[in-house]
Simulated scan of single mutants.
Amino acid sequence: MSLVSAIRTNSLGLSLFALITAGAIAVTQVMTRDSIAANREEAAARALYEIIPAERIDNDLLHDTVTLPRAQQVGSEGPLAIHLARKDDQVIGVIVPVIAADGYTGSIELIVGIEADGTLAGVRILRHQETPGLGDKVDLKKSPWVLGFNGERLQSDDDPGFAVKKDGGRFDQFTGATITPRAVVGGVKRALQLFRDNRAHLLEGSPWEVHRNG
Rank of each mutant, 00 (worst) to 15 (best):
6 A>V: 05
6 A>N: 12
8 R>I: 08
14 L>H: 14
15 S>M: 15
16 L>Y: 14
16 L>C: 14
20 I>G: 11
20 I>Y: 12
23 G>T: 10
29 Q>D: 10
40 R>A: 14
40 R>Q: 14
42 E>C: 05
44 A>L: 13
45 A>G: 12
47 A>G: 06
50 E>Q: 15
51 I>N: 01
52 I>H: 03
52 I>G: 01
55 E>H: 07
58 D>L: 06
60 D>A: 07
61 L>R: 06
64 D>K: 07
66 V>I: 14
68 L>I: 11
70 R>L: 10
70 R>G: 12
70 R>A: 11
73 Q>P: 02
73 Q>I: 03
74 V>I: 13
81 A>M: 11
83 H>I: 01
87 K>E: 08
91 V>W: 02
92 I>W: 06
96 V>P: 00
98 V>M: 04
101 A>E: 15
105 T>F: 15
106 G>Q: 10
116 A>Y: 01
120 L>W: 02
123 V>T: 06
124 R>W: 03
125 I>Q: 10
130 E>D: 07
131 T>V: 04
133 G>A: 07
135 G>I: 03
136 D>L: 07
136 D>S: 08
137 K>Y: 02
144 P>T: 09
145 W>T: 03
148 G>E: 05
148 G>K: 13
150 N>Q: 10
152 E>P: 02
157 D>T: 09
158 D>M: 13
161 G>C: 02
161 G>P: 02
166 K>F: 05
166 K>D: 11
169 G>H: 08
171 F>W: 08
171 F>H: 08
176 G>E: 07
176 G>T: 07
178 T>E: 12
183 A>R: 01
184 V>T: 00
187 G>N: 04
187 G>M: 04
187 G>V: 10
191 A>C: 09
193 Q>K: 06
201 H>A: 05
201 H>C: 01
204 E>F: 00
210 V>P: 02
212 R>H: 10
